[in-house]
Design a protein around this nucleic acid. Structure first.
Lengths: 347, 347
DNA sequence: CTGTTAGCGCCTTCAC
DNA sequence: GTGAAGGCGCTAACAG
């Protein structure tokens, strides 16, 4: 199976043994040109919305012919000569990198609005990726959007045939454009909120601290807490997952529960809260403030009474699309999206 | 921006004005053949893991040359002549059709394991779709997996150049293969579970009842409830969303709360439960059984104390991949995946 | 303005 | 076994 697609001069029913030349198959530009009584070049120009001028009458004839034949250009053949395919690769480590379907959906429709199509690459490991990309259409994309924190910019640039890679994983060198969240304002605001509510002691639940991204985030929390006079009594390491949030709850419960818990991911905050609920099903949880990070849509809907930190997803996607369309004047300077504090329903 | 990708004989730095002929650009098979001292045809055969025999020594020379040059075939050119691109389109109405990232992730890695790449199409409207698909690489895919309930099989077949479309949206005609969940066993088991626990009255929260899929599901619930002697005291219509679950809770709260609530989507059950929690924050919710549908991974993790109905996602994806690889012997008969009842932590 | 001619890079007969 | 030659469908370059 996975039969090749129908080609020119080849009907859907592949019963003909005769050299398929004029079968009622997919029409080519030659068919259009012949029907319109012009040369292939003129037909091509008339249809390609090109700058080159074509006489109105011929253009009309060509368009009529194309419509009558139901012609649509073979983008592969076009690609081979124009050397562009209107494809954008989205590279993820794991699909969950696109932590939020909302974001993903916006991105997809933005790319389509640009007249491009999205090809999705799951990059499980670096070596695997080379084969994967080199032997597939992905190699020929016009741009690559990198969410996977797996590879750095040079690696990715070497992997695709395009030079336009947009780093969205925090790992930018000065050469490829990047969009990053400015986490400082959101974190400061969250900590300030806690301080305002009289919190004196807190715990921090982190992700894999190996990533430079996460290290910086942790540093921001530490600085903000110090500044606000809140004692950071415990740091627990998780891995951004719901399950690791549950584990963190167990760890924290072994000591005095802090007045506030900051998690560097909403999923961890959710797990932590659910674990508390499970542990004390009939007992109203002791008053503590819970802060997440990411602004997952589920949290925004009020499913979990936690406060969170996030950026405007629409703006984030808009910046990415801008870069795709116009490039970035100065790739040395990553584009920055500010984060905000989002008070929860019952933070 | 969105500059065309580098092509053969074209270095990354586009400073040369000379006709790029032997620049240190992307190597072609001609370069390999020249370096190996053989003809292009031999090089092609040696590299294409073809059945045609090539003398071992020449093969070795070709392989060495390819390795030294870092040659990788241009899949576009190959596609143009072989007429297949190892691309699989995944058609969604809205990205949320892939209700679960787990499922999506499995699918993506399954497709990649097949040596194919996934191109993602968001089909907002039918007319829009034609242009979108026809003018992009998507038109040339080897297969299309249709999750969007937007279009029926004939429409989709007319949209792509391939005849292999796999209907995963429940809208199968007899011509294209389809994979559907057999919802009866899961629903019967869920209702039986309620009956066993002494439930006498229940409500049903449904999705858009316009879809034939949903209508059948509703009928299955009705039949099972009747059979189990449980009175269906109320049917509330939602739209599968978390928000509509909250709304349903409000509607139900206006009357006597039923002993059990069955929702045709986990997201609705989650919303319904959270709404109850919000309404009675300090009050242990009256004893009622809550049943969802979909087996979202969040539910499986224990985040929500609801029972649910679902199928084995690994098996589901495996069936799809099977079809991609081998086709389906009898497309008239949709492939069926049984659903199971999954008792919740505190159903 | 238009038509002719060469490719794009690969695969595939078909002769040798 | 091997190589030369002719497409695949379209577009860019070059004449008219």
């Amino acid at each position: 199976m996975l039969a090749p697609c129908r080609r020119a001069g080849e009907g859907a029913t592949t019963l003909a043994m005769t050299p398929p030349k004029k079968s009622p198959g997919v029409p080519t530009i030659s068919d259009v040109a012949a029907l319109a009584g012009v040369s292939r070049a003129v037909a091509s120009r008339a249809l390609s919305s090109e700058s080159r001028p074509v006489s109105p009458e011929k253009r009309a004839r060509v368009e009529a012919a194309a419509a009558r034949l139901g012609y649509s250009p073979n983008v592969v053949a076009r690609g081979l000569s124009r050397n562009t395919f209107d494809l954008v690769a989205v590279v993820v480590n794991h699909i969950h990198d696109l932590s939020d379907l909302d974001l993903f959906d916006r991105l997809l429709s933005g790319i389509q609005a640009l007249g491009k199509q999205m090809i999705l690459i799951r990059m499980a490991s670096a070596e695997h990726a080379v084969d994967l990309v080199r032997h597939g259409m992905a190699y020929h994309v016009d741009a690559a959007l990198v969410f996977s924190d797996f590879a750095d910019a040079p690696t990715i640039r070497g992997l695709f045939r395009t030079d336009l890679v947009v780093m969205l994983n925090g790992r930018h060198d000065g050469l490829s454009p990047a969009v990053v969240a400015d986490e400082a304002p959101g974190i400061r605001a969250a900590v300030a909120d806690a301080a305002k509510k009289g919190v004196k002691s807190a715990a921090l639940v982190t992700g894999r601290s190996s990533s430079p991204n996460e290290q910086q985030r942790i540093a921001l929390y530490q600085a903000a807490l110090r500044e606000a006079g809140i004692k950071l009594q415990r740091v627990v390491q998780g891995d951004y997952s719901y399950a690791s949030g549950r584990a963190a709850a167990a760890t924290l419960a072994a000591e005095t529960w802090p007045e506030a818990v900051f998690c560097t991911a909403d999923a961890m905050a959710m797990g932590l809260l659910d674990m508390r609920r499970t542990d004390f099903p009939d007992h109203h949880p002791g008053r503590f403030r819970l802060y997440g990070f990411d602004n997952l849509s589920l949290v925004g809907l009020g499913a979990y009474p936690i406060a969170t930190i996030g950026f405007d997803k629409a703006e984030y996607v808009a910046r990415i699309i801008d870069i795709l369309r116009d490039g970035l004047a100065d790739p040395a300077q990553p584009l920055t999206i500010p984060t905000h504090f989002i008070p929860g329903t019952t933070a």
